[in-house]
Design a protein around this nucleic acid. Structure first.
Lengths: 315, 315
DNA sequence: AAAGAAAGATAGGTTTTTCCTATGCAGCGA
DNA sequence: TCGCTGCATAGGAAAAACCTATCTTTCTTT
């Protein structure tokens, strides 16, 4: 009994497929070899190797033209497909010179993303239809961790980031406004100074969020009291706590602008004077290098912000 | 300005893709190298070569686990697809041990195929759904030519074939019956001897068909006259010429059985005594070797013939 | 029918690629 | 801070691929 199974030692090679592809079109060794820029014996050997690797004869060699076997025809077709896929492979990195393509995994802070990304995504999809963004929310602290663990390519978060293994690009500066219960004395004020807050209760997000630190600092600077018995887990929760009279807090301008109607509801928004701000940025691992796509995305976001939120935030 | 384009000299290799595929799952060089049965430096070099070939960094190397870049993820996915397609490639020849698959190009004689193939194809499709037959008709003479030119893999034709560059497998022996005009004196006879034909007119297909030679021989042996002023181009044409009283002819049993109703029409079918026969067979190029699939197909056809045409033809 | 031409196969030796062992270098944990 | 882990680098050996030259067979030509 002769063995029908091919030797598992010999593996198919792309070179073999490339050669066979040309041969299957030219149907002539010498011709195909010339096209390939190699000698006829080299081609011959590679085709033999392919036949051995596949365990099948692919062509009948005859003086006048060669004839593909039925298997040879199928192999040729499949090889064509494979070679095309390999070309696609080489194009993955290539012509992204002018466009963003592929999939980026973006971590997004719940205090920024929900009020910024919807508009960004809409325009992004129009401008770069081949770009896919996978967005996952998380607290800034978790996101930095996940970024370093490789779960994100980028994170949209608040600056500053004081780590030397993380790069970032500044996106915009966003005012923080004071949110007070509507019945509170400060509710009607045109603006509020820090000293106005002495003795007041301030509430904030939990310490995973950078906003919490800014509230703490405001307390320290103004003599307000930080209520550490309640911690909001979202800006919405914070707003509701304010509306229930549990204290006042700082809310980012984008959130306040989209979720709190002036003159309506139980919460009033008041400007601080001098202004308080937070910065938003796009961050990535130092070890990612600084891919053009990251910078491009950052610029795009800045462009959207400039158009959509002009006057509310500052570039 | 640094060059962004990759060196066209370095081509992607399947080996690189295989290695990268494992690496992208293991996310660890040492581990992946061990899985692959190679040393870690070898893996390292191959991955570097792949990155160079693609002109992109595929992964961030870090001490604790490595992180694929966005391009790396896409390359990994595409590589996976390619590797699967390569496996498919290797399966083209492989497990056809028990089944016929792929596409066979079958040339078919118009005097045999139309009366045999319909039933064969139906059963064939049931038994081997993955087998595709591309069938083209042609005169036996043309078909032999096309077979040698590589336009067919197999031909279904009449035997004998007296060429040493063509192999064949006998399929069945088919009686040739005499077709006479209904008003002819021989029409009512139970059987006819050669000597009964002396002086009669015989008509036949053109000389591309082997049937024509058998008619000629019959003329020579019986003293009948071969009308060479008319040549049928199909069995149907032949039958009609008979019905018009232009002469008599030989018709294969399968054709006569399916196209000429006994006791109806203007043509009567009569047995010859002693019988005349022709042989049908499946033929292929000597240089094709003798693929198992060819023999298998031949056996299958014989099986169908045995079931469907028992008593009409002989195995 | 015999000589010539053409096409693929084979052989021998060289160049290129791949691989392995050994070693270097940088984070990470104790 | 020391050692451990993990990838990168270097150098030499093994394997693969290639080329030139030659052979064999077949198809063509005379």
């Amino acid at each position: 009994m002769q063995r029908h199974r091919e030797d598992p030692l010999a593996a198919v090679t792309l070179r073999q497929l490339r050669y066979f592809s040309v041969l299957s079109k030219s149907l002539q060794y010498r011709n195909a070899a010339r096209q390939l820029g190699i000698s006829q014996p080299s081609l011959s050997l590679q085709i033999n190797a392919l036949e051995e690797a596949l365990g099948t004869r692919l062509a009948e060699r005859r003086r006048s033209g060669l004839i593909l076997t039925p298997e040879g025809r199928e192999v040729a077709a499949q090889a064509e497909k494979i070679l095309q896929d390999v070309e696609k492979l080489q194009r993955i990195s290539g012509p992204s010179e002018n466009s963003l393509t592929g999939t980026l995994r973006l971590g997004s802070s719940p205090t920024i993303g929900p009020y910024l990304l919807p508009r960004v995504l809409r325009q992004l999809h129009t401008a770069y239809p081949d770009l896919k963004l996978v967005i996952r929310d998380g607290t800034p602290r978790d996101m930095i961790e996940d970024l370093l663990a490789g779960k994100h390519d980028l994170v949209l978060t608040q600056l500053p980031i004081a780590r030397d293994d993380i790069c970032h690009k500044f996106l915009f500066r966003e005012p923080l406004h004071l949110a007070v219960p509507r019945e509170h004395a400060l509710a009607g004020r045109d603006h509020v100074k820090k000293t106005d807050l002495a003795g007041e209760n301030l509430i904030s997000l939990n310490s995973s969020y950078m906003l919490s630190r800014q509230v703490s600092e405001l307390c320290a600077a103004s003599g307000a009291r930080l209520r550490d018995d309640f911690e909001g887990t979202s800006l919405d929760a914070l707003r509701q706590m304010v509306s229930l009279g549990m204290g006042m807090t700082l809310l980012p301008a984008l959130y306040a602008g989209s979720e709190v109607k002036p003159g309506e509801g139980d919460v009033a928004i008041t400007q601080m004077k001098p202004g308080l701000y937070r910065q938003a940025g796009l961050a990535w691992r130092q070890s990612s290098g600084t891919p053009a796509s990251f910078l491009k995305l950052a610029e795009f976001i800045r462009g959207v912000v400039a158009n959509e939120f002009a006057g509310k935030v500052y570039l």
